[in-house]
Amino acid sequence: MSRVEDKKIALLRGINVGGHRPVRMLDLKQIALDLGYFNIKTYLQSGNLLFQSDASNAQIEQDLSASLAAHYPFDIPVIVRDAAMWNQVVAENPFKGEDFDHKQLHVCFVQKSVPLQALLNPFKEKFAPDRLGCGNRALYIRYDGVSHRSKLNLQFLEKQLGSKCTARNWRSLLKIQSMLT
């Protein structure tokens, strides 16, 4: 029987976007298998890797990053969460109970542990009507329009937080959560 902390999600940033930085999911599965991970699944082509491992999240980030660097000529930031952390992110959604389009709510995962609320409070009003909420090592961004047109983007967040980030929309978060059971 597997423990919930053995179930992991690795989020790869910036792959397979508009034909740039291509990574085949079959190759990603093989890399994970070579690293000793098991029960490996992917979701979509955007770098969502689900698997089991008894290694720490930090160790997996390090090992997977190194293996990806050996296979690809471009940097691929990796952020790992275990199933318990994933469920916490879903539960902490500051916009739950509100009516919203799941494509307009994105969760931004932050690699380092940083004081999200303190660092981002000064910017909350600057990006209105987009809305920003903070959780535990995750930010919730509710876009008023199309996310790629917002100034509240990953580049801005990484600069303010001093950490690599990657985002997934709410629909993807819930689908990945269902795949963890």
Results as ranks from 00 to 15, higher is better:
125 E>D: 15
161 L>K: 02
135 G>V: 01
80 V>E: 06
86 W>G: 06
27 D>R: 15
175 K>R: 14
73 P>Y: 11
111 Q>T: 07
47 G>N: 05
32 A>I: 05
99 D>P: 00
21 R>P: 08
70 A>C: 09
104 Q>M: 02
2 S>L: 14
173 L>T: 04
90 V>I: 13
28 L>H: 08
85 M>C: 07
172 S>G: 04
155 Q>N: 15
68 L>D: 14
87 N>Q: 14
119 L>G: 10
177 Q>S: 07
148 H>C: 09
3 R>Q: 13
5 E>H: 14
36 G>M: 10
23 V>D: 14
104 Q>S: 04
42 T>M: 05
80 V>K: 08
149 R>I: 09
28 L>S: 05
15 I>F: 04
4 V>L: 14
161 L>Y: 02
79 I>E: 09
135 G>L: 03
91 A>L: 09
44 L>D: 00
181 T>W: 04
115 P>Y: 02
15 I>P: 12
129 P>W: 02
141 I>C: 14
168 R>A: 07
27 D>H: 13
95 F>S: 01
98 E>R: 04
156 F>P: 01
114 V>K: 05
44 L>A: 08
116 L>M: 10
93 N>D: 09
106 H>Y: 08
145 G>C: 07
81 R>T: 01
136 N>V: 11
152 L>F: 03
169 N>W: 00
141 I>Y: 00
146 V>W: 09
61 E>C: 09
77 P>G: 11
20 H>Q: 13
156 F>I: 00
76 I>A: 09
143 Y>I: 01
34 D>R: 15
174 L>S: 09
22 P>C: 05
148 H>F: 06
7 K>T: 01
65 S>C: 06
98 E>G: 00
136 N>W: 12
78 V>N: 09
84 A>Y: 11
57 N>W: 03
180 L>F: 12
36 G>Y: 10
11 L>Q: 06
84 A>S: 08
123 F>L: 14
25 M>G: 07
132 L>M: 11
143 Y>Q: 04
35 L>V: 14
177 Q>P: 00
160 Q>C: 15
91 A>Q: 12
17 V>P: 13
138 A>Y: 09
68 L>Y: 02
58 A>D: 10
89 V>Y: 04
68 L>C: 12
106 H>E: 10
180 L>M: 15
45 Q>C: 07
95 F>E: 02
108 C>F: 06
53 S>Y: 08
150 S>R: 04
24 R>N: 13
18 G>Q: 08
154 L>P: 06
12 L>F: 08
150 S>L: 03
178 S>A: 15
139 L>A: 01
84 A>L: 14
9 I>Y: 08
9 I>R: 08
163 S>T: 13
47 G>I: 00
151 K>I: 00
178 S>Q: 15
107 V>A: 08
42 T>A: 05
11 L>C: 10
83 A>P: 05
